[in-house]
Amino acid sequence: MNAPLPIEKTTAKDWASDQEVRWCPGCGDYAVLKAVQRTMPDLGVAREKTVFVSGIGCSSRFPYYMETYGFHTIHGRAPAVATGVKLANPDLDVWIITGDGDALSIGGNHTMHLLRRNLDCQVLLFNNEIYGLTKGQYSPTSRVGTRSPSTPFGSVDTPARPCAFALGAGARFVARGIDVHKSLPDVLKAAHAHKGTAFIEIFQNCVVYNDDVFAPFTARDVASEMQLWLKAGEPMLFAGGTKGLALDPDTLSLKVVAADDPGVLIHDPKNRTLAHLLVEMPPVGFPVALGVVYDDPAPTFEAAVIQQNDAMAAGKKPDLQALVAKGQSWMVEKEPRAE
Rank of each mutant, 00 (worst) to 15 (best):
A164V: 05
S155N: 14
T134Y: 03
L125F: 05
C121F: 03
L114C: 14
R116K: 12
G108P: 00
A169F: 06
A175P: 11
R172P: 01
S150N: 15
A171Y: 11
F153S: 06
N118A: 09
H113M: 08
N118D: 14
A166Y: 00
S139A: 13
V144H: 11
K135W: 03
T111A: 12
R116T: 05
L115R: 09
M112P: 00
T146S: 13
S139L: 04
L114P: 11
P140T: 07
P159C: 05
L115A: 10
G170H: 09
R117P: 08
R116W: 10
G107I: 00
G107T: 00
V174W: 01
T146H: 13
N118W: 11
F165A: 01
S139I: 04
R172L: 01
V123S: 05
G145M: 11
A171K: 07
G168S: 09
G168Q: 05
A171E: 04
A164S: 11
T151E: 11
G108L: 01
A160D: 00
A175D: 11
N109F: 03
D120G: 09
V144M: 11
I130L: 08
A169W: 07
T134H: 06
T141I: 09
P159S: 02
T146G: 04
R116D: 05
V123W: 13
H110C: 10
F165C: 01
G145N: 08
A175G: 13
T111D: 05
L115K: 09
L125M: 12
G145V: 06
I130K: 07
A166F: 02
R172W: 00
Y138V: 04
L114E: 15
S105W: 09
L125N: 00
Y131E: 07
R161P: 03
A160G: 01
P140Q: 12
D120L: 09
N128R: 05
G107S: 11
T158S: 03
L104G: 09
V156M: 08
L119Q: 15
L119P: 06
C121M: 10
D157T: 06
T111N: 08
L104K: 08
F165K: 00
T158F: 04
L124F: 09
Y138R: 04
G107W: 11
C163K: 02
G145K: 09
L124M: 08
A166T: 00
R176F: 10
L114Q: 15
A175F: 03
P152W: 15
V156D: 04
P140W: 07
N109C: 12
G168K: 07
E129I: 09
L119E: 15
Q137G: 02
N118Q: 13
N109D: 13
V174G: 04
R161T: 02
R176K: 12
S150E: 06
L115E: 03
H113C: 02
F165S: 03
T111I: 09
F173P: 01
N127E: 07
T111Y: 10
S142Y: 12
A166E: 03
H110P: 10
P152E: 14
G168F: 04
P162M: 05
K135M: 04
L104S: 10
L167V: 07
F173C: 06
R161N: 13
F173E: 03
C121R: 05
F126Q: 02
H113S: 03
N109T: 15
A175W: 02
R116F: 11
N127W: 06
N127M: 08
R143C: 13
T141A: 06
F126D: 01
F126N: 00
P159Q: 02
N118C: 08
K135L: 06
T146M: 12
R117E: 12
